[in-house]
């Protein structure tokens, strides 16, 4: 509350520093990037408005568009692996950890969450070494369980490189769904579970019919967070495969495609305006995901919320 007549300077002082930095280095660059995507430029750096030309080039041009669609499609596969592998494992671990009277739950939690904290770059290199046929660690381990024949240079093959990278990312980030789901499982009121237990429901039935419906909003949240993270990923691909996202662009996702378009690679020059166009398209993809989340998923899930 402020007294009438006196200008509330303190509000300005509280708001201004953060507002200024956020606007100048986050909000404005995002807007400027959207604007830039409608411009073209020549070698001298002169820019002019070119309408939708860049978008036509990236999305439809017979030579250039293949790269974009390939990256987008790969990115969807990358995301799908996370949804199908990371979230179920996270859910299972959280369900086990939240069991009543489980000894050592805190230690399990702490240790399983550890990889999530490390840099994606470091994780990428670590797995590159472990999967390397040169070192032979994975081969030895597979041999121990009689599956040595299945070993292959997964990261080097066009057919398996993307899946392998996605699984590495799953391995690293499974701690996040685990923790978020675990927290929402703990928040379920005791009485509800006790009532079911007294009625003679088995733990499995309690999980499927009572707990799971109650934590659906959290699963939705985890999915959209994964979506945003995946469609903005770059570090892992760059660390393991470099900017070219080989072999033969089979691990190229939007982040690495954006980087190459902006900075160029090998003989082709980078272009800030085309880079902006790719970034704007990434923005649209993320925006579409967020909108689907808010309008479709969230609305339906709210019915179950307490």
């Amino acid at each position: 509350m402020t007294k009438a007549g006196r200008f509330p300077w303190h509000i300005v002082v509280f708001v201004l520093p953060g507002f200024f930095i956020y606007t100048l280095f986050s909000a404005w660059p995002l807007l400027d990037t959207l604007i830039l995507s409608f411009f073209d430029q020549n070698d001298t750096g002169a820019r002019w408005f070119s309408g939708l030309d860049n978008y036509r080039l990236v999305l439809l041009d017979p030579d250039l568009s293949a790269g974009f669609w390939n990256a987008l499609w790969n990115n969807f596969k990358f995301f799908l692996v996370h949804v199908l592998v990371q979230n179920p494992i996270g859910l299972m671990l959280a369900a086990l950890l939240s069991l009543k009277d489980l000894r050592g739950a805190r230690s399990y939690r702490t240790l399983i969450f550890m990889p999530t904290l490390l840099s994606v770059v470091i994780i990428g290199f670590i797995w590159q070494l472990i999967l390397s046929p040169l070192w032979g660690v994975s081969e030895t381990l597979l041999e121990a369980i009689g599956m040595a024949n299945y070993f292959d240079a997964w990261l080097g093959k066009e057919s398996s490189a993307l899946l392998t990278l996605a699984l590495i990312s799953v391995w690293q980030f499974v701690g996040i769904p685990m923790m978020l789901i675990y927290a929402s499982l703990l928040a379920i009121p005791e009485e509800l579970l006790d009532a079911a237990y007294v009625d003679g429901a088995s733990p499995l039935r309690i999980f499927w019919q009572i707990k799971l419906p109650l934590i659906l909003p959290t699963l939705g949240l985890v999915t959209i967070l994964t979506f945003i993270g995946n469609f903005n990923a770059f570090d892992l691909i760059y660390a393991v495969k470099g900017a070219l996202a080989g072999p033969n662009f089979s691990t190229d996702i939007l982040g690495s495609f954006f980087y190459r378009t902006f900075f160029g690679f090998q003989s082709s020059l980078g272009s800030p305006t085309l880079g902006s166009t790719v970034a704007s398209l990434m923005f649209l993809v993320i925006l579409a995901g967020v909108m689907v989340y808010f309008w479709l998923v969230q609305r339906r899930l709210h019915r179950y919320q307490l």
């Binding site: 404005w28 660059p29 800030p272 902006s276 993320i286 925006l287 967020v290």
Partner: peptide, 16 residues
């Protein structure tokens, strides 16, 4: 800023 990754503004950030 929570929903939109700041990376998407990289072109302008670098020019700035």
């Amino acid at each position: 800023g929570i929903m939109v990754p700041i990376r998407l503004g990289t072109v302008s950030i670098l020019e700035l």
